[in-house]
Amino acid sequence: HRVWCVRSDDADAATAWTPATGHSEGVTVAVLTTNAKGRDPRHTAAIRDAVVEGLRDGTLVAPHHRTRTPGVALVGGGPGDPDLITVRGRRLLAEADVVIADRLGPRDLLAELPPHVEVIDAAKIPYGRFMAQEAINNALIEHARQGKAVVRLKGGDPYVYGRGMEEVQALAEAGIACTVVPGISSSISVPGAAGIPVTHRGVAHDFTVVSGHIAPDDERSLVDWAALAKLRGTLVILMGVDKIGAIARTLMAGGKSADTPVAVVQEGTTAAQRRVDATLATVAETVLAENVKPPSVIVIGEVVSVRPDSSPRASE
């Protein structure tokens, strides 16, 4: 009868083929393939889904035709693995004109940026190069005032020891709009990646996150270490590798058992991740012997001994 026939059940028997379509933020994607394999509607739909998902999460972008939003986005990049940045964070990164990046952010994503994007290194390396916070604030303001889309890419979450609020305050004072995108904090993701639950039924009902960059006996410290020593839950210490000896001694002096399990996870969630186990009594010498370096997350508590093959305790 000379009528075109679309066969979704048997593409080889069809005389016409329709595209698999999808939509993402006002964009319609249509995929139509013509070779023998491509005529399989499931294959075509899979390609369609991949393209749409790439547009949604920012992994696929047309730099010269993208939507630009002048201002600053404060993006939490997660603990280090590029796949652990949020979908929204990755999309904003793909739309940026300028990226001001921390050392602890997912820096592998910077290699995917188009050539026109200006990348500014705002690393704060212990005992190494250092970009002052005031200089970072000024750079954010300067580029935003030029009408550029600026992404401040930070490691972890911007508000967990990331000085995020200081940058938001500086931008607000300058009258510049700022979007804050939360990120996955290393305080829970890095222990998890190393096989350590920060809470576990019958073992720990709470966990406390502490900055260890200031020693317990330093007058600038805002941490009540004596109170922490009495807690039964999990203690997670960030930025504490070089102070772990003083921290361990203070906790033991406050009553925490010297046999308390400790794990130190270096460069968690990345290809270079490694875990070193010790006790509160031995962790200082173990860190030195194993040459553990920042960035590392220190976990103190009975959850360190929980293994995948161990059963939960009866008590709640």
Rank of each mutant, 00 (worst) to 15 (best):
R7G: 11
A11G: 09
A13H: 08
W17H: 07
G22E: 01
G26L: 00
G26T: 00
V27N: 04
V27H: 00
D40M: 12
L55E: 05
R56T: 10
D57Y: 02
T67A: 14
G71W: 14
V75W: 03
P79K: 01
P82V: 07
D83P: 12
T86E: 10
G89R: 08
A94T: 11
V98Q: 04
A101S: 10
D102R: 03
L104G: 06
L104A: 07
P106C: 06
P106G: 02
L109P: 06
V119Y: 14
D121P: 13
A122Y: 11
A123I: 11
Y127Q: 15
G128M: 01
G128R: 02
R129C: 02
M131N: 07
A132R: 14
I136Y: 08
N138A: 14
R145C: 13
Q146V: 15
K148A: 15
A149M: 14
V151T: 06
R152P: 07
K154H: 05
G155R: 02
V160E: 00
Y161F: 10
G162L: 09
V168K: 00
V168P: 01
A170N: 10
A174V: 06
I176Y: 11
T179E: 14
V180Y: 09
V180D: 02
S187K: 00
G195I: 03
P197W: 02
P197T: 02
T199L: 03
H200F: 00
H205G: 13
D206N: 06
D206T: 09
G212S: 05
D218M: 10
S221G: 13
V223A: 08
W225Q: 11
A227Q: 07
L228K: 05
A229Y: 05
L238V: 06
M239Y: 05
D242L: 13
M252F: 07
A253L: 12
K256H: 08
V262D: 00
G268T: 07
T269P: 04
R275T: 08
V276T: 00
V276H: 02
V276N: 01
A289Q: 14
E290C: 12
N291T: 13
K293E: 10
V297F: 06
V299Q: 04
G301W: 03
E302Y: 04
V303F: 03
V303H: 00
S305F: 00
P308S: 01
P308H: 05
R313G: 11
S315R: 15
S315I: 14
